[in-house]
Computed example of a mutant assay.
Amino acid sequence: MGSSTALEKLQRELQIEANDLSELQKGDYIIMYICTSSDILKNHQVRKKYTIQLGENELALKLNSLNEDTNLCILEGPVFVRQDLAEANATVRKRIEYIAAELERMDAILQDLEEKQNSKKDVILKLQQGIQSLYAGKAKT
């Protein structure tokens, strides 16, 4: 009687933890301003986009090798607009800072999501082991 109630309790806990893990993997929780765990894939995709943009902007910084009198134009909508070299470099540096900060933030979110998933998996594994040991105990009797 005691082992049957203990078994039922472990099974309920297992179901709750499995549901929590499933919720995490579906992305129903919100962490900071980005979605969660099944959104790990989305996080990786956005991170890849930012990494590409970071490389492009770092390449753009090589404009420093241009002469000050070089005509520099940027695309604003459908029109090219002349821009000062110093202003263009400042804009690119700010973009690089922003992208680098976003990458760091996304890395922190990703690490947090993975830690939560691993924690839930550990709890589920322990509950499953408890259930198995109760079944093994019943089988012996």
Rank of each mutant, 00 (worst) to 15 (best):
V92K: 05
L14N: 12
K126D: 14
R93W: 08
K94P: 06
D39V: 00
Q111P: 05
A88T: 15
L21P: 05
K42I: 06
K49L: 08
Q53D: 14
Q53V: 00
L66S: 08
N43P: 00
E8R: 11
I74A: 05
G55H: 13
Q53S: 13
L75Y: 01
A86S: 11
A90D: 13
C73W: 06
C73N: 11
S38A: 12
S37A: 06
L113P: 06
Y50T: 00
T70V: 12
Q53F: 09
N43H: 07
I34H: 04
Q132I: 08
T70P: 05
C73Q: 14
Q53R: 15
T5Q: 10
K94Y: 07
E68V: 08
L24S: 01
A139D: 08
F80N: 09
L14T: 02
I74N: 09
T91P: 02
L54N: 02
I99E: 07
S65N: 06
C35I: 10
S119Q: 14
C73R: 06
V81S: 05
K121G: 03
K48L: 05
I96R: 03
A6Q: 12
C35K: 10
A60F: 10
L75C: 11
I40L: 12
Y98C: 01
L10P: 06
L134D: 02
E58S: 10
K138I: 12
V46E: 01
I40Y: 09
L85V: 11
V123K: 11
E76R: 13
G27H: 00
S38Y: 01
D20H: 04
L59M: 10
I31N: 00
L54D: 03
G27A: 04
E68K: 07
S3T: 11
L66Y: 13
S3Y: 10
L113Q: 15
N19M: 02
E102G: 00
E115D: 15
G55I: 01
Y50H: 09
D28A: 06
L14H: 15
K116H: 07
E114V: 14
T70I: 05
Y29P: 00
L127K: 03
I109N: 02
L10A: 15
I40W: 00
S38E: 12
A90G: 12
A60K: 14
A90C: 01
R12V: 14
E87D: 08
A6Y: 03
Q53W: 02
R12A: 11
Y29W: 03
K138W: 02
V92Y: 04
L63M: 14
Q132D: 15
L54W: 01
N57R: 07
L85P: 12
D28P: 00
L61T: 07
K62I: 10
T36K: 03
E114W: 00
H44S: 13
M1W: 10
K120R: 10
D20S: 12
S3R: 09
D107N: 15
R12N: 09
Y33H: 04
Q53T: 08
G137S: 15
I31G: 00
S133N: 11
L125I: 05
I124G: 14
D69E: 12
Q117Y: 01
A18G: 06
D39H: 12
L21G: 02
E87K: 02
K120A: 15
